[in-house]
Design a protein around this nucleic acid. Sequence first.
DNA 1: TAACATAAGAAAATCGTTTTACCTAAGATA
DNA 2: TATCTTAGGTAAAACGATTTTCTTATGTTA
Lengths: 346, 346
Amino acid sequence: MVTLKEIAQLCNVSITTVSNVLNDKPKVSEETRKKVLEVVKETGYQPNFFAQGMRKQKTRMIGIIVEDLDIFSTSPIVEAIMAYCDDNNYRTLLVNMRLYDKWQDTWYNNEKDIQSVFQPNIQELLSIKVDGIMYVAGHCRYINYFKKDFEVPVIIVYALSTSAQFPSVIFDDDKGGYDITKYLLAKGHRKIGVIAGTPDNIHTQKRCFGYQRALFEENVLFNPNWIKHGDWERGSGYIKAEKLVKEGVTAIFCMNDLMAAGAYDYLYENNITVGKDISIVGYDNNQISEYLRPQLTTNNIPMKEIGRTAAEYFIKLIENEIGPNERQDVIKLTCDMVIRDSVGSV
Amino acid sequence: MVTLKEIAQLCNVSITTVSNVLNDKPKVSEETRKKVLEVVKETGYQPNFFAQGMRKQKTRMIGIIVEDLDIFSTSPIVEAIMAYCDDNNYRTLLVNMRLYDKWQDTWYNNEKDIQSVFQPNIQELLSIKVDGIMYVAGHCRYINYFKKDFEVPVIIVYALSTSAQFPSVIFDDDKGGYDITKYLLAKGHRKIGVIAGTPDNIHTQKRCFGYQRALFEENVLFNPNWIKHGDWERGSGYIKAEKLVKEGVTAIFCMNDLMAAGAYDYLYENNITVGKDISIVGYDNNQISEYLRPQLTTNNIPMKEIGRTAAEYFIKLIENEIGPNERQDVIKLTCDMVIRDSVGSV
DNA sequence: TAACATAAGAAAATCGTTTTACCTAAGATA
DNA sequence: TATCTTAGGTAAAACGATTTTCTTATGTTA
């Protein structure tokens, strides 16, 4: 690996001069500049990453912390962030906390355990002196553990920073629930059941709110018995679908595609045809939604866009290109419906 | 951030001594060692990453190069690699070459373009002085571009290094094709069609070989008309299934689950019941295989295990813990079948 | 002409580690 | 007693860049 020193020798100039050329400093004659650049190109010089990092404050590295890469939403977001950073000449350092404990098939719950996972991971990033940290939240539950005072900028992606301490990029759950319900109402449905997520979950709550808002707007009475809470997994979709069918609903709004698949399972077993006898809508636009039969009408969460938007805003933040009046604490993206074949008219 | 110097001052010893303590060097009295460690703990000292990197040859960083994270097989492998590295106190630096060009919806084909993507990405990793490079190949096509002389160890994951220049971790395609065919034969099928992958693909070829080997073993005549080549996508499964049905086969071995889903599409449209009128087997154990109806019998590629095995072997390699007779150029993992509901007996 | 300003560049300090070479006192050996 | 070891430690060099300070020749102004 060729160093500044060697280039300086080849050009008969000092190390300082070479450095000045490479950093576009003024005190160099045109002639010298040309010669140095030529030698630099010839030798294929690459600045030593560590030496540079030691001197400069900026490393052009962005740390990405994720709770678990196996969460459905995490990978596409991370990919989009990485792609944008790459295009803008930033390196990324991905730290996977793996909060999902495979051996116990459960998420970390114990407060102390969680802290013990958070601390070292964050410390590590800071010791590498990243220029900023992007926290991709999957589970809202953990976000509150992320509240240290950092000497670098921080952004929360996919979930709202409850303390409003950090800027966030999220999507509009309320509109999602509203759109789906309006759509079903427009198709003539009046008895619309919901297979919701876990009750304390913020997504669940906001989507429920959108659901009720739509009903209210159309003067359709809200029946609390038609909301059943699942656990986001396929199995709970099966169980809750059975209950809702017995309630006599004509359409079911499932708060993710996995539970919608569970609902399909129940309906198939009982010879109830989706899209004809009953209508189903999902949420997420998970890959599987295209493989269910009939293909599932759902609400697309624009993961890639969320990642890209977050990265774009964040890099501006790091580079101080955001004026005080452009500053946004929450950037909210909208989800649009993907109409497929699982909804019929009544 | 606290430095060695400050700790030295607090302890009334030299910087050297502190460094010696931290690096388990011998020339320190037990008393001094104790005092230093105490202060280190108190202050929460973390060695400066850059200063350390500059001095040591090893950075405890492993570079992972992937062709495209969007390839189905790539993410789980990368995750497993990262997890293992993490557990062994190595950091990973993921470089996504993004060879899949979204705007043109096509892969890079032009030789020059590919080179222009490979070069800078690899150069970057080397400038950070990673301790080694793991190349996670998705597309066998690109592997040949990866043949530079590196000053660090290299391993190829998921595909065979054709030049045999680097060690590889792969899985047994031949056995996969063989097992599936044997299974179908055991179920009484004699007319077994194949929806293969692209003809020049190494996976296609090896699986075909396994298929023929099984037929031969059971004295079943091989009919070349029953092998149709698809392009690994859903649509081609649809098209080829039609042809095979017209050939009168009773079972179809699809070389990935996506094409199997395409076959399902055709069969469903034509009221042919999968698992009864015709049997289908896939390959990959893609998530979607559990959501097709009936659930797809397929062959599981152990992505996580591939990643883990590769990382384990590679770290040993880096740390020179592999004796000359333990050295393996190819580590081949086996795939096992996942029996679900898409195969019936004749 | 003397004092000063400026352009172009060089020397040296610096970042925080690790490593090499050197030092000193105490005990061992010839 | 003179020399050699050794344990325990220190000072200084090195890694490769950036940054600050210093130098010199030339041109400008009073």
